[in-house]
Design a protein around this nucleic acid. Structure first.
Length: 467
RNA sequence: GGCGGCGUAGCCAAGUGGUAAGGCGCGGGCCUGCAAAGCCCUGAUCACCGGUUCGAAUCCGGUCGCCGCCUCCA
């Protein structure tokens, strides 16, 4: 049996994976900031995390999975100025920041459910872990790794010789943008806020807390460091996120956590998913180019067809999104489901079995850094194989779907829908056909088709289904 | 300026040293009274140039084009 290998951003290479304790893989996935509905690009990141989780289980490991919800707003624009995204959304929608967070969190979870993403063992919110975050800042402060300026407490990256290793930052050569003039007199451009103080003027934030440094809110990298160690311990196995997180968010998470917790490496495997690209560029909420799952469904496309689409490209590969490609995925998905349904009826006995071969190939490609595109290729080969019997195909389909999560194992032929009128029309059509009155029989078929009923003549007789 | 990625058939994309997976589409065929569904057949020498090698889409050098991150972002 092949071993699971995963690409680790830390080493920039595939490494054999095994949980620290040999049994339970501890995985943390950076969750969304919930000030709007997640778009398809965001969702791709969680489909990637889900594929990882399913692959870990497929390898026989248990998985303890944590996803956070960033419900504290950070800034819309520059790190030092700009309005808080949560508060901005709240103002626009006429709700409190808390309600906004709640609303979009629910939508997010619902979207994941539609995509067949397995729920994590722990959902954790930044706002519910303020004490843990304050504690981490305090620890860093005691170690002399922080400094205070007007608007908050900052992490002094110059004190960490390992700072930036994940991203392989070249601090000296990096051309750093001029900071916008203002309160943030950071000693280094890469220093980052641990605790931001609320503005001194009259503008009060909806979300702020008392701390040893004054009223304010936590820096945006802090929650992940604090919550992951709380629920997974430290070190833990795998941390996932989008590629954009490598240079800043994850780099800073590492700096905080490794120094506060005194473990290094704090996380053994860092895994990053690539972007979903629109024609105009990447999908980004800030650019308003995001398409949501609701819109996908609005086009009559099954969310799982989107899942199939996403699985068609490797998770570390930038993928092009086009309407056309999405629709093609729906065609392919419908076809797959139809096969799955058909196979549910299979009762044959196995011939010379090729099952082990397919099983082996599937495991090998999944174990090779989650090569879903190749896994799908194996799936199609199984579906269209002439060697395999129906029962064997069904068995394999169910097994593979544990990893792919396309809902094929759950596909069941709906109990024959009773519809006396349609049954009656089909009978009439049968009579017409027997009488070779095809004009009449075609008329009936067309009438039904107009209302979305497709008739299929099979050896067992005429079947109908909704288009 | 730094870091990273991409350029494979009409489209979405695998493959990273041994003579190009898969899906969708197109075209042809089988089945059907005709359809639908299903099945079968059918397409590329891998941006370009040069090098290494018995052998390269795959390694090295260069050119062109495209994109991401470096500031919130999956």
């Amino acid at each position: 049996m092949s071993e699971l290998c995963l690409y680790n951003t830390l080493s920039r290479s595939k490494e054999r994976f095994e949980p620290l304790d040999g049994k339970v893989a501890r995985v943390y996935s950076c969750g969304p900031t919930v000030y709007a509905q997640q778009h398809l690009g965001n969702l791709r990141a969680y489909l990637f995390a889900d594929l990882l989780k399913r692959a870990l289980r497929f390898s026989g490991f248990e998985v303890r999975h944590v996803i956070n919800i960033t419900d504290v707003g950070h800034l819309t624009d520059d790190a030092d100025l700009g309005e808080d995204k949560m508060e901005l959304a709240a103002r626009k929608e006429g709700l409190s920041a808390w309600d906004i967070a709640d609303k979009w969190t629910q939508v997010f979870k619902r979207d994941l459910e539609k995509l067949n993403v397995l729920p994590p063992d722990v959902w954790c919110k930044a706002t519910e872990h303020i004490p843990e975050q304050i504690e981490m800042v305090a620890t860093l402060e005691q170690k002399g790794l922080t400094y205070r300026i007007d608007d908050g407490v900052y992490f002094d990256t110059s004190k960490d010789p390992h700072y930036g290793e994940l991203a392989r930052l070249n601090l000296k050569a990096q051309q750093v943008q001029e900071r916008i003039e203002g309160a943030a007199a950071k000693r280094s451009p890469v220093d980052f806020a641990l605790w931001k103080l609320s503005p001194k003027d009259d503008t009060r934030r909806q979300m702020e807390w008392d701390s040893p440094w004054g009223r304010g809110f936590p820096g945006w990298h802090l929650e992940c460091s604090a919550m992951s160690s709380k629920y997974l311990g430290a070190p833990f196995d795998i941390h996932t996120g989008g590629v954009d997180h490598v240079p800043v968010h994850h780099t800073n998470e590492i700096a905080q956590a490794e120094n506060a917790l005194e473990v290094r490496p704090w996380v053994r495997f860092w895994m990053h998913g690539a972007w979903l690209m629109f024609e105009e560029g990447k999908m980004a909420k800030s650019k308003g180019t995001g398409m949501t799952l609701d819109q996908v469904e609005g086009r009559g496309i099954d969310p799982l067809a989107y899942r199939l689409f996403v699985l068609g490209a490797h998770y570390r590969q930038q993928m092009s999104f086009t309407d056309e490609a999405l629709e093609r995925a729906q065609t392919a998905y419908s076809r797959l489901v139809r096969h799955a349904l058909e196979l549910e009826l299979a009762q044959d006995s196995a011939g010379v079995s090729q099952v082990p071969g397919f099983r082996k190939r599937f495991r090998e490609v999944i174990n090779d850094d989650l090569n879903a595109p190749q896994a799908l290729a194996v799936l199609w080969e199984v579906v269209r194989s002439r060697q395999l019997g129906g029962v064997e195909k069904r068995t394999l389909l169910h097994e593979f779907d544990e990893v792919l999560g396309l809902g094929l194992a759950e596909a069941r032929i709906a109990a024959p829908e009773l519809n006396a009128r349609i049954e009656d029309l089909i009978r009439q059509r049968e009579e017409a056909r027997r009488a070779r009155d095809f004009a009449a029989s075609d008329r009936i078929r067309e009438e039904l088709e107009a209302e979305g009923i497709i008739l299929e003549d099979t050896v067992e007789g005429t079947r109908w289904r909704r288009a």
